[in-house]
Design a protein around this nucleic acid. Sequence first.
DNA 1: TCCTTCTGCGTATGTCGTACGCTGTAATGC
DNA 2: GCATTACAGCGTACGACATACGCAGAAGGA
Lengths: 253, 253
Amino acid sequence: MAAKTDDSDPAIPPAIESAWGLRERPPKGPRPGLTVSGIVDAAVRVADADGLAAVSMSRVAKELGAATMALYRYVGSKDELLMLMVDAGYGPPPGPAAPDADWRTSLTRWAWAEHDVLRQRPWLLHVPITGPPITPQQLGWLEDGLRCLDGTTLAEGERMSALLLITGYVRNDATLTTQITEGSRAAGIEPGELMPAYARMVGRLIDPARFPSLSRVLASGVLNQDDDPDEEFTFGLDRILDGIEALIRRRAV
Amino acid sequence: MAAKTDDSDPAIPPAIESAWGLRERPPKGPRPGLTVSGIVDAAVRVADADGLAAVSMSRVAKELGAATMALYRYVGSKDELLMLMVDAGYGPPPGPAAPDADWRTSLTRWAWAEHDVLRQRPWLLHVPITGPPITPQQLGWLEDGLRCLDGTTLAEGERMSALLLITGYVRNDATLTTQITEGSRAAGIEPGELMPAYARMVGRLIDPARFPSLSRVLASGVLNQDDDPDEEFTFGLDRILDGIEALIRRRAV
DNA sequence: TCCTTCTGCGTATGTCGTACGCTGTAATGC
DNA sequence: GCATTACAGCGTACGACATACGCAGAAGGA
């Protein structure tokens, strides 16, 4: 029998071990000049400043005054670095809500917390997700979300589904909102002008006979007025929470 | 005054003009040996066979027996090609539902249609979205969705929000489902083994005292049993439709 | 016929991720 | 105190990739 930890299960990827602080420094060899968290912080700094596209291994290394290849002593690949960046970028979860708050209030707070993080760091949305959450902060967010539903009648599986539903919505909303910001900057027009310009372009392209309902939306002008994005967000969130509430009531019977 | 079309509005990108068939062949010069749609079809073929990552300009050109740079006579950039690939990949919208169907039945059908497309072509999810829909098929899907809500009490803006909500959900669900398929193939294990392996890894990493709710979910075993993905999908979709239904009823008062 | 205008595409450039292997360093075993 | 050894930093090199540029030849109009 090996004296190491149970190897019958799938091995934990090195990046994950780093993230959970399970990596011990080997007893021999030169002292490391860098740290994983230092590299991740530098990468996050680059992404915050210039977007995810600017995060290259050489750029991160430059940020640290190190050579490109030095980073590979700490992260196995760029994908690993990205995963650690997401963990650091999200940061610690919002923490438990007030103890007397009901599930709906708590979940609303939870959703807004993720909403705020994604507004702050839009590049998080551009990191391709490759699997279920496994890093410390990610699981922390999940834990906090589950706690919001602790007193409800939902089954465990339903709680997970409900949280997945909400996270998905938050990310989706943030993606769309971000696109308007980034798209207008790319097109060189003010953010408030993008949707009207879009509406005009669609109007020029489509034939009202083939697209009657869409034409009606265009004619109504709802696309031109830029409503508060936060109201948009609240609208969708309330729809989803209404749906979950209906389920909770049904389970309570 | 210029004799051309109204230029006071933002110019329509060349790729969009191609997609809408507004591109006329110039009267002079050699006959084009390729077509935009031929290039797009080839690119879709590559993506279907080997995934979006395999779609490089040279690979698509090879598929057509042409040189890499020949493609740039037809598409302005790879991003344009991607946009056209999405349009072609989605294909025509499902068409109007039965005339006597209520909005909920119609929207369910609409959501399932997108669901099916994304199951068939998971690479569609990996194409970074850069703006609101503008290509013919995309707007066709939107039109069909709007028609589902034609008889309801919702305002135009609310209809758009509701559709956005549903599309977002469908894409999100497909993303998660696809990750399990692609992730298990990458890890070299059967798809049915991925979630149990994930659950075991999480169980080894977390401290039950710090993650009580999450531990409870793990202990319940819901992650181990692989339930029907279609049931998962139906669950979330019904939650969202419940939420929309609640709004429709409130508006009807 | 000649000129314009377009197509196909060869060449070249710059950016990336990263495999490999050399050099020097720090702690251990003797 | 010294040899051993495992590891840190990183220079070099390679293969992909998107794409700018410009030339050769074809097709149609004058």
